[in-house]
Amino acid sequence: MNFDVGLGQYYEAKSPIHTLDPRVKLFFVIVFMVATFVAKNVVAFIPLLVFILLCVIMSRVPARVILKGLKSLTFIILFTAALNVFFSKGETLLFNPIEIIPGFWTLTAYREGLINAGILAGRIIILLVGTTLFFSYTTTPIELTDGIETALAPLKKIKVPVHEFAMMMTIALRFIPTLTEETSKIMNAQKSRGADYSSGGLIKRAKALVPIVIPLFVSSFRRADELATAMECRGYRGGVGRTRMKVLKMKAWDYVFMLLSLCLLAGVILLNIYLNGVVYTL
């Protein structure tokens, strides 16, 4: 059994964010991404930060859960930030250059680089919190694929098999926990027979995976076969004429939220233009 709550697991709660139409969430995340990349100065980030914080509070997902999700990406964020501090050029030096390998590499850091790094890190964090909050913590994978399917429905006109893709996605997502459980079962079984995954060189470790991967493949094929039969038995024949149990319907709150997200984007753009002269100031 695997109960790990990590990056991107649905967090059950009743909140205005949970009840948003998945299409609106899709729309918001796209607008939000654009806004985050458009924001060019520190001040323009403030509305984004405030907005996302309000969303987090409204969603009733505990900050602990979200921070835990961020923790796994700390290294990547810090690494990108460090690259920006030490490898970008600017005007004001932060400290006297230090020669690390004489004549070859001199460590320098500029004020502009530091600000750049800060903005970049902030951008990554805001984006991560925004997308995970809307796509995984408050939306079940099924709702999300439903949303994608209806949002892309017009593409059916040009013969894109939208329903089939959505069904494939739903099935793939549905079987992630099943496969995780299966993997841990098989690992336990092989461990009981003396398998050792944690010692030896790279090749030895790769070889130790064979007794896990093969049974996993075999059971996945078996399961796919069974699922296909079960679906056929229940009369599944693709997307044509298929009705839904839950029909997505936009409510007043959904329109309000769409309007709010457009306001956010407009605000960020205005701040950008208004503060054009004072771009890099802290």
């Binding site: 079962k185 079984a189 092989q190 007794p211 075999v218």
Partner: peptide, 21 residues
Amino acid sequence: IGNIRFKVGMVMQYPEYQLFA
């Protein structure tokens, strides 16, 4: 801890799904 598993043999539920060779 691995050594104890040679002394205590364990057959899991549905062990046929662990066959691989």
